[in-house]
């Protein structure tokens, strides 16, 4: 789903159009002191980590909106464009670890997403947006206690970069 630049691969209950529509239905505040951030989370490690944070009543930044994916490997770059054109200030991909001691349930999904993000830099440059607005984080289910820090750090960085110039269009 994520690999195809023509977006031809989809499932009956999970499609590129579905996630694009969800992103477009988010209510993005026109003006705010706090950056407004889209989080794409995988259902295998990141979603449970968020659950565990909730179960432990750990409080975190309320300016994130998480959309759960089957795997970060299915991330289609059109979603980045959708989010940025809605005025969302930054996008964070949270998924399983990849590499030698990988945990990604789809073996290489998060790795493939990471490589694909490298291609998005060019598009961002053309839109006069900073590449840092899109980040990927590897999170294991047992690292839920790091979440508040990870989210706040990204939010701080986005504050330094300033709000998305396309906000309110």
């Amino acid at each position: 789903m994520g690999a195809c630049p023509q977006r031809i691969i989809n499932f009956k209950n999970y499609s590129i159009d579905m996630i694009s529509s969800m992103i477009r239905s988010v209510d993005v505040p026109d003006e705010s002191d706090e950056p407004f951030i889209l989080g794409l989370i995988c259902e295998n490690d990141a979603y449970p980590a968020l659950d565990l944070a909730g179960q432990n009543r750990v409080q975190y930044n309320p300016n994130f909106r998480f959309i759960s994916l089957r795997c970060l490997g299915g991330t289609n770059l059109v979603w980045i464009a959708d989010a940025l054109s809605k005025g969302i200030d930054g996008i964070m991909l949270i998924g399983c670890k990849f590499g030698d001691d990988y945990q990604c349930h789809f073996i290489k999904g998060s790795q493939v997403a990471n490589e694909r993000l490298g291609k998005v830099q060019e598009t961002l440059d053309r839109l006069m947006l900073e590449a840092e607005r899109v980040q990927q984080v590897q999170l294991a289910i047992n690292e839920w206690d790091n979440l508040p820090q990870i989210l706040d750090d990204f939010s701080e960085r986005l504050k330094e970069l300033g709000p998305n110039p396309y906000k309110g269009f």
């Binding site: 789903m1 690999a3 195809c4 630049p5 023509q6 977006r7 031809i8 691969i9 989809n10 499932f11 009956k12 209950n13 999970y14 490997g73 789809f106 073996i107 290489k108 999904g109 493939v112």
Partner: peptide, 23 residues
């Protein structure tokens, strides 16, 4: 029970999906 569907009319044969699939 879902199954991927390919809208082949728009396929440009770039083969990215074929090469990237971990399986």
């Amino acid at each position: 029970q879902t199954f991927p569907e390919f809208r082949l009319e728009s396929c440009t044969q770039c083969r990215r999906c074929t090469v990237e699939c971990p399986f």
